[in-house]
């Protein structure tokens, strides 16, 4: 079965690029352009991986991460926060909220895919 990823980012151009990258790598991709829709789609589709932009309309990436990590059904889901903000307090808070990784934009798609697969494996193999 194809791995499933949800990409939540309000930046349309960037989101499309990331979608293409994951589709090429064999993922089934779902997408949303704001945090609130991201949570809805996550609950409907229960993907193994969720990529969250940090600053988004309605719900921020941190808030979505917090919601997901407080929901038992996402305990095996890897969550990656991605942002052009490269400040340490943002990275520390992402880790504290249970994000598996914080990736600074712009990133190499190959590196993102590698990071994503590593964290998906870790989550899937966790007890």
């Amino acid at each position: 079965m194809k791995p499933r990823v949800l990409i939540v980012d309000d930046e349309e151009f960037l989101r499309k690029m990331i979608v293409m990258g994951f589709e090429r790598d064999g993922f089934t991709v779902f997408q949303a352009d704001n945090g609130e829709d991201g949570v809805k789609i996550a609950r409907q589709e229960l993907p193994e991986l969720i990529l969250l932009d940090l600053v988004m309309p309605r719900l921020l990436g941190f808030e979505v991460c917090q919601i997901l990590r407080n929901d038992e059904q996402f305990s095996k889901t890897a969550v990656i926060i991605m942002s052009a903000k490269s400040y340490k307090p943002d990275m520390d808070k992402a880790a504290e909220l249970g994000a598996d990784a914080y990736v600074v934009k712009p990133f190499e798609m190959a590196e993102m895919l590698k990071t994503a697969r590593e964290h998906m494996d870790k989550r899937q193999n966790s007890k």
Binding site: K85, V104, P106
Partner: peptide, 16 residues
Amino acid sequence: TLFRQAQNPSTASDFP
């Protein structure tokens, strides 16, 4: 803040 990435020609250098 993204100057390190911008210096890497293999990434989207005009992103910042």
